[in-house]
Design a protein around this nucleic acid. Structure first.
Length: 262
DNA sequence: CGTCCACGTCTAC
DNA sequence: TAGACCTGGACGG
């Protein structure tokens, strides 16, 4: 269930479950079209960091200063799961074997997630609005003249070049909280309603605090039970049958306040 | 059984 | 701006 908050929770999960752990091998499920990972270390450690909708994992050799980075995206269904070796989930596509007889798996039912060895953050994505808020604002403001901002704000918010980490539920929740017509241009909306910038930081942080989305079968990486109540107080627009919805120009369902229908 | 839908990108006419 | 890439859950007949 991956937008900014879920990516952050996923990297937390990797870190919490990898602290002080020795990894010994990496294997790719041959069914997956992605490239094999080549981690030529006998014993290594793993850590992860998220920005927007990307995670960078770092593999550190225990016997030297060498390290390797791998950039991963989650697609629609990617997540990590720690199990005993031999009991990995059905759709485990990368398996990170550990000395203690357990495996950390990258699990991705739909296989839209991707990885690339030797890469860190993509340069075609903007700054993370929660980690680098000032850069996030600067990046948008200094490019507001561009054609991307001619598009309606509800579409522009999905553009990872400017709004890294915002996805389909966050755009709905952000716009629902602003008194702005979601069909006016992004340039006009951002100029007249600069609180949109703030919400691009605050709402992902709030979703993170709540333990991530509960839209479908998203399992909180810590197994923490989220009170359905607090989550439903957060998710007030997306998927709510009393809201209006339409299919946007990219084929995604956009949920919004029906007061904006002519 | 079938059709529709899903928290996201990608690339090919 | 369609489709392609994927699996599976919900729901209809």
């Amino acid at each position: 269930m991956p937008e900014l908050a879920e990516l952050r929770l996923t990297s937390d999960y990797v870190n919490v479950n990898s602290k002080g752990i020795t990894y010994v091998n990496v294997e790719k499920n041959p069914e997956h079209k992605g490239a094999n990972l080549n981690i030529p270390f006998n014993y290594f450690n793993i850590s992860a960091e998220s920005r927007g909708k990307e995670i960078v994992m770092t593999f550190r050799d225990q016997d030297s200063d060498a390290s390797i980075s791998v950039r991963i995206t989650m697609g629609m269904s990617g997540h990590f799961k720690l199990t005993n070796t031999g009991s990995e989930p059905k759709h485990a596509h990368l398996k990170f074997y550990r000395k203690d007889g357990t495996t950390l798996s990258f699990v991705d039912v739909r296989r839209f997630g991707k990885w690339k060895q030797g890469e860190t953050w993509s340069d075609n994505r903007g700054p993370d609005p929660t980690v680098n808020f000032q850069d996030f604002i600067r990046n948008i403001k200094s490019n507001l003249h561009k054609k991307d901002f001619d598009k309606p704000i509800h579409e522009a918010l999905m553009n990872q070049k400017w709004f890294n980490g915002i996805g389909n539920y966050l755009r709905a929740e952000i716009l629902y909280r602003v008194n702005v017509d979601p069909f006016i241009s992004a340039r006009e909306a951002l100029t007249s309603n600069p609180e949109i910038y703030q919400l691009c930081k605050l709402l992902p942080l709030q979703a993170y605090k709540l333990g991530g989305g509960k839209i479908k079968d998203w399992e909180n990486p810590f197994g923490k039970q989220i009170e359905a109540e607090s989550w439903s107080e957060f998710m007030i627009c997306y998927g709510n049958p009393i809201m209006a919805k339409m299919t946007d120009r990219n084929g995604r369902t956009f949920w919004f306040d029906q007061k904006w229908i002519m």
